[in-house]
Amino acid sequence: MCGIVGFLDRLDRPDFPTGRVVLAMLDALGCRGPDSAGAALLRSDEIDGVWAVRIAPGDALALTRLEPLGVVERVEHAAGSLRFRFRPGPGVTPEGVEVALGACRDGLEVLSLGSRIDLVKQVGSPAQLDAAYGFSAWRGPLAIGHTRMSTESRIDLSHSQPFWAHGVSDLATVHNGHVTNYHQLRRRYERQGVTFYTDNDSEVIGVYLRDRLAQGRSLTEAMADSIVDLDGAYNYLVASAEGLGVVRDRFGFKPLMIAETDAFVAVATEEIALRRAFPGSFRVLEPAPGRALFYPLAVTPALV
């Protein structure tokens, strides 16, 4: 139960203050989720053949375990996390990196991995997130954010959102609501050998999308499938290298508002966030229940 926001720039403006508008939206939703805040952003520049990885806690010793798999470059520490570039050797998978790092429950977590994505989150308010990571200065064409009111799982860093879809480069989700068949799905995936890093039902969304992608479905198809397969009350947003995904459960249980202009697409749990972050007049719409929308980067949206 939370506030979620998403932003997509349609004008390819490298100087657009994406971090600042995402924080402004999250701040306006503060009362919905006092427990933690986080955001994932897609950087404009793609780094060919190199992954950007962020892990927490910022355990530099863990990086030595990556030596057999590739080359670690440009290590930066920030607020208890650690970001570095990783040039993988032949055949190395994102999952292989996680395993080598020793990512597991209650231990080290890979917050994000991909050629463009960066993801930060922590216990506390959006303002604290900015203080720790300077998120308001982050630039990029696409971002999603989250402010959390924990319901059934713990309040700590790894239970905060966004969730990187572990194993899939440049894919992250934020979720407002709950998945009522979470345990059933989790057990099914665990039997298939999937590792879950938290007890948060929201984590299963990324696992689900990853599973559908592996079966050859497109991201938009996977999102549409999820409306049938994920039970409960949810809106979730997907940040991918291709664009911004928006999914509402079949009953429309949780609020979600979308502002779509020639310049941008902005999504937030409440309109107040959109009005706070963007000046000027624009129409704000509540999408129909049971819909998956996908807004490609710099292209008009497609209805799935």
Partner: peptide, 9 residues
């Protein structure tokens, strides 16, 4: 309202 976050309001 549906859920605790909307109940705040």
């Amino acid at each position: 309202f549906l859920g605790p976050d909307d109940m705040v309001i």
